[in-house]
Amino acid sequence: MASDKEKEELVAYLDGELPDEAASRVEKSLVDDAAVRSDVEQLTKTFDLLDLLPASKASDGFAEKTLTAIRTKESVPDTNTAEKTSPAEKSQSNASRRVFAWGIRAVAFFGLLFVATAGFNGAFKQNSEPMDELLTELPVIQRLDEYQEIGDVEFLKSLNESGLFDERDKAPQD
């Protein structure tokens, strides 16, 4: 039985990977030694049996499917479109795309600002209306107890007609 080193040399010889000197050594042992010849024969035959394994082939349209999958994953432009577009057109198209993107951003910003302002004004107005009413009615509210004691407007009219308020107005002049 050959040593590990000898086996390595035999296999490398069969694969054409031995330098000339080592190859000559193996060839000499092949002539001299029947056991080595048998080893080489078996190694060759068993290796050749691998040819029985079926050769696999890609399914129909594999290449196209692969290119489509890569285009989808990498957002690669279609070859036809890419070929028709010159570098100058590409650069112009990129510039237009950048301007468009900035336009979209500006519209979004001002839109947001408008909505925020309108919302603030609306909320302020809604909160300030009851406050204005209270301020207008403040003198009445302050003397509400007295007004409630008087009762109604008809009673106040009759007092006025009796001349009571005229006398009170004149009193300081005396």
Binding site: L53, S56, K57, A58, A69
Partner: peptide
């Protein structure tokens, strides 16, 4: 290279669909 890659992957995985998936991944 499609058939060569798929051939090697099929011998390794014993599954032609998985071999095609792996070949596609290699090309990606």
């Amino acid at each position: 290279y499609q058939n060569r890659l798929i051939g090697i992957f099929t011998h390794v995985l014993h599954d032609s669909a998985a071999a095609e998936d792996l070949a596609q991944e290699a090309f990606l």
